[in-house]
Amino acid sequence: MPKWRCRLMWVTRICSRAILFSFGYHWIKRKGKPARREVAPIVVSNHVSYIDPIFFFYELFPTIVSSESHDSMPFVGTIIRAMQVIYVDRFSRSSRKHAVNEIKRKASCNRFPRVLLFPEGTTTNGRSLISFQLGAFIPGYPVQPVIVRYPHVHFDQSWGNISIAKLMFRMFTQFHNFMEVEYLPLVSPHESRKENAVHFAERTGHTIASALNVEQTLHSYGDFMLFTKAAELKQENPSLYMVEMAWVQSSLHLKALEAVDFLEIYLQMNPDPRGQVEFHDFLRALRLKPCGLSEKMFEFIDVQKIGKITFKQVICYSNPYLLLITHGYVRSTFGGIGTPIQL
Score class of each variant (00 low, 15 high):
1 M>C: 13
3 K>G: 08
6 C>F: 10
7 R>V: 01
12 T>K: 09
14 I>M: 13
17 R>Y: 02
20 L>N: 13
22 S>F: 15
27 W>E: 12
40 A>H: 00
43 V>I: 09
45 S>C: 15
53 P>C: 01
61 F>M: 12
66 S>E: 01
66 S>T: 12
78 T>P: 03
78 T>K: 06
81 R>V: 00
84 Q>V: 06
84 Q>R: 13
86 I>H: 07
88 V>M: 08
89 D>K: 03
93 R>V: 01
95 S>L: 01
97 K>E: 11
97 K>V: 04
116 L>F: 08
118 F>P: 02
119 P>M: 06
127 R>T: 14
133 Q>N: 12
134 L>R: 02
140 G>P: 06
142 P>E: 04
143 V>T: 01
143 V>C: 08
146 V>C: 05
147 I>C: 05
150 Y>I: 06
153 V>K: 13
154 H>G: 09
156 D>C: 01
158 S>L: 13
162 I>N: 03
162 I>Q: 05
165 A>R: 15
168 M>R: 07
171 M>S: 12
176 H>D: 00
181 V>D: 02
181 V>K: 05
188 S>Q: 13
188 S>K: 13
188 S>R: 11
195 E>W: 02
201 A>K: 01
205 G>H: 04
207 T>K: 09
208 I>G: 07
210 S>K: 14
213 N>K: 02
216 Q>R: 15
217 T>P: 02
223 D>Q: 02
224 F>Q: 11
225 M>W: 15
228 T>F: 02
238 P>R: 06
238 P>Q: 01
252 L>Y: 09
264 E>N: 05
272 D>W: 09
274 R>E: 10
280 H>L: 10
281 D>K: 08
293 L>Q: 11
312 K>P: 05
313 Q>G: 05
316 C>W: 05
318 S>I: 04
321 Y>S: 11
323 L>T: 11
329 Y>C: 11
343 L>D: 06
